[in-house]
């Protein structure tokens, strides 16, 4: 089902928070702020190229990044940019 959705989307990065539950993507970039958000996420493995799967969106966003389950608030999920999963070759 998610492949249908992906077929229509362009490959421009979009926020993690826009993923549907169970949808998969790859981290493209993280918007930095003054308080070290990007650094903290990086140290938890949220780095460009990491595979992510959205697990739930309420009451807070929970996603799987590689093999780590992370809970974040909405603003953080908005700051993580993802793009379509690369096709396995």
């Amino acid at each position: 089902m998610s492949s249908m959705r992906l077929a229509f989307s362009s490959d421009r990065p979009r926020p993690l928070s826009s993923l549907a539950v169970d949808e998969r993507a790859v981290v493209a970039d993280v918007h930095a702020d003054d308080a070290g958000r990007a650094e903290r996420l990086l140290s938890l493995g949220v780095t460009p190229g990491a595979a992510v799967t959205m697990l739930q969106k309420l009451p807070g966003v929970v996603f799987l990044c590689d093999q780590t389950e992370l809970a974040v608030e909405r603003i953080v999920a908005d700051a993580i940019l993802v793009r379509r999963e690369e096709r396995q070759t």
Binding site: A35, R37, R40, L41, L44, G60, V62, T68, E69, L70, A71, V72, E73, I75, V76
Partner: peptide, 12 residues
């Protein structure tokens, strides 16, 4: 002062 953003690892 500020509040920090919520980012937490969930152990299995």
């Amino acid at each position: 002062g500020d509040r920090s953003e919520f980012i937490l690892e969930l152990p299995p």
